[in-house]
Structures are given as structure tokens and as C-alpha cells.
Amino acid sequence: MDLVKRPRRLRINSIVRDMVRETSLDIKDLIYPLFVVQGDNIKEEIDSMPGVYHFSIDLLIEEVKEVRDVGIPAILLFGVPSYKDKLGSEAYSEEGIVQKAVRKIKEKVPEIVVITDVCMCGYTIHGHCGIVENGQVLNDKTVDYIAKIALSHVEAGADIVAPSDMMDGRVAAIRKLLDSKGFVNTPIMAYSAKYASSFYGPFREAANSAPQFGDRKSYQMDYGNSNEALREIALDIEEGADIVMVKPALSYLDIIRRVKDNFNIPIAAYNVSGEYSMVKAAAKMGWIDEKSVVLEILTSIKRAGADMIITYFAKDVAKWFTTL
């Protein structure tokens, strides 16, 4: 008699299911994004991102302490400046919002890993990620500024810098400048495959960074392309990236998998604002169970090959894990 194949044998018992599970999500896999603004005693919820806030530096410190206490190892810091100009000068100012926040975090919560987003879009009056002349974003001129911003973050105490501008050659420029200033041990987490995505809408409200004309398709990637992502990542690795990122995550699981299969380098995936807000909205309507959906989504990102996940759900997940 032919034996019946019974894969269900390993699914019947919850303990056995855990024993044979191929992919596990851990608090240490998570990075928590935070938005810091000028002022005092500010904690204002972002309308399109329930549960995510703008913090002034004084209250940001309390939030970072809570992040540390629930076991999340790192934050990704975004600054929302009070002043903008054509050159995004607050982005590289010693008294810029990110620089002041980093110094205070490293003073008060030195054990947290501080990753800083390095870009110009939130700091320029036109909302583009670089220097604009005659309606064009200039690549090489922008790269000089991106490196300058990264250096200012590291001088303030940032542990890792994360350039998100998608200009050609910016990783090499940052690496060269950091090394020349003695910061040879500061890693670069490059937004290497950053797609021109519609999932960034809530973030642009949070960071006040929407472009004032046109779009970002001349420098962010076309969502129809995957081979191009591998070329971009290969270039960033060659230029000195220590970690590469795929952004967004959920609609780009195939990209994460291809990167994992082709490169021996740590991979970060960004579970972006639109992905977060859709889950929050559906959960609010009672259409889905938020906790189970979030854990399924994040596990799928890890299963695809991500080593670390940047997610606005990080603090919720950490708390869920401590109550399991």
C-alpha cells in the first residue's frame, strides 16, 4: 500500500511548529524611525500615521529611552527643520535639528545605535533631494553636499549614516570624506534600491518633504525594474556601502530576495509609511487584526532575506513580544 505523505504531522502541535519554523522575527531585527522638530515640549501625532509623532528634542529623549527599554537596538532619525533654503543649509549646520538631537541622544542614551537619514528634500524650499538649477537636480554638485551632511551627522555622534538621495557616486563621496576626517569605522547604510513609490505619501506629510514641482523619478528607481536594483547595489558595495537597503519593502519582496541571493552583505528593508498607514486604517475599521497582520508582514520581509527591518511598528512589536 502506498504511504500517504503527511506534512501536517509537523503542524499539529504548536511546540513542534515552533521547532521547525524556518524564519523567526526578533526584536533585535528592528529599527525604529523617529521624527524630531525644533521647539520644546512637543509631541504631536502625525495625522496620516496614527501612533507616530513629531518630537522636540526634550521629549525625543524620553521616547528613545523607551525604545531602548523595550529592547529595540537602533533608531533611524529624520529631522524636520524650521528653516529651508535652496541649498538645504540646515541639513549640514552644526546647529541643525538632527545634529542637536544626535548630540543629546548620545549624551543621554549612549547605548542606542543612532542612524541618521542623509538627504536634502526636507531642508530645501523645492523639496527635491539635491541642488536644483534650471529645473534639474544636479547629480555631482548634490553629491558634495550629501557628503558634507553625512560628515556633520558623524561629527555630532551618529553611529551610522544612511544616504537616501539616490545620487550617483554619493556613497564613494561619503566614504572618502569620512575616512579623510578619521571616521574610518563609521558604517554607511545606503538606500541602494529606493523606488519612486506611491507608498511614501504619509512620510512626506511627516517630514514636510513633498517636491514642489515635478517628481523624483529622474533619480529614484522605476518600480518595474529589478535588474537595475542589482546594478545599483553592486555599485554601492563597490563604493563602500556596509549595509544596503531596499525601499519600500512589502511590494519589493522579490527585490530583497534577489539581493540576498546575489550579494553577501547585510540587507535592510524599509517597511514604509504607506504600508504602515494602510494597516492602521484597516485595523481601525475592524477589517483586519492588526497584531497578526503586522507580524505576518514583518516575517515575510525577513523571510525574503532582510537582515534588519526599519518599521514604525517596531515599538508595538517589541511590546507584543514581551507579553507573549
Rank of each mutant, 00 (worst) to 15 (best):
D47Y: 10
S14W: 09
E111K: 07
V294M: 03
K65S: 12
F199G: 04
R303Q: 11
Q136I: 15
G305S: 09
V171D: 09
P33L: 12
I146Y: 00
H126A: 05
V294H: 02
I243C: 02
R6Y: 05
M278L: 15
R170I: 01
M166K: 01
A206Q: 08
A173N: 03
A268L: 14
A91H: 01
S218R: 13
A206S: 06
E275F: 08
G96S: 05
K260D: 06
K86M: 07
K181P: 03
S292E: 14
F199W: 15
Y312E: 06
A74L: 01
L60S: 11
I149D: 00
E44R: 14
S89C: 03
K100I: 05
I75V: 14
Y191A: 10
I42Y: 04
K194G: 13
H128P: 02
V171Y: 04
E94L: 08
G274P: 06
A314D: 02
E275T: 06
M278A: 14
R103H: 06
A193V: 07
P211R: 01
V70R: 03
I297A: 11
R6D: 08
H153G: 04
T323D: 08
L177M: 13
M245E: 04
E205K: 13
E228D: 12
L34P: 11
I233M: 10
V102S: 07
S300N: 14
K319W: 00
R231F: 12
P73C: 00
Y53A: 04
G274S: 09
Y53L: 06
F313R: 02
E133Q: 13
V132N: 05
T323R: 14
F203T: 02
A173P: 01
Q220G: 08
F199R: 14
V137P: 04
I125F: 04
T23F: 15
I42T: 10
E275Y: 12
C129I: 02
K43T: 09
D165H: 00
D29F: 01
P187D: 14
A74D: 02
V184F: 02
W287S: 13
A190E: 10
I112W: 01
E94F: 05
L298C: 04
S192Y: 08
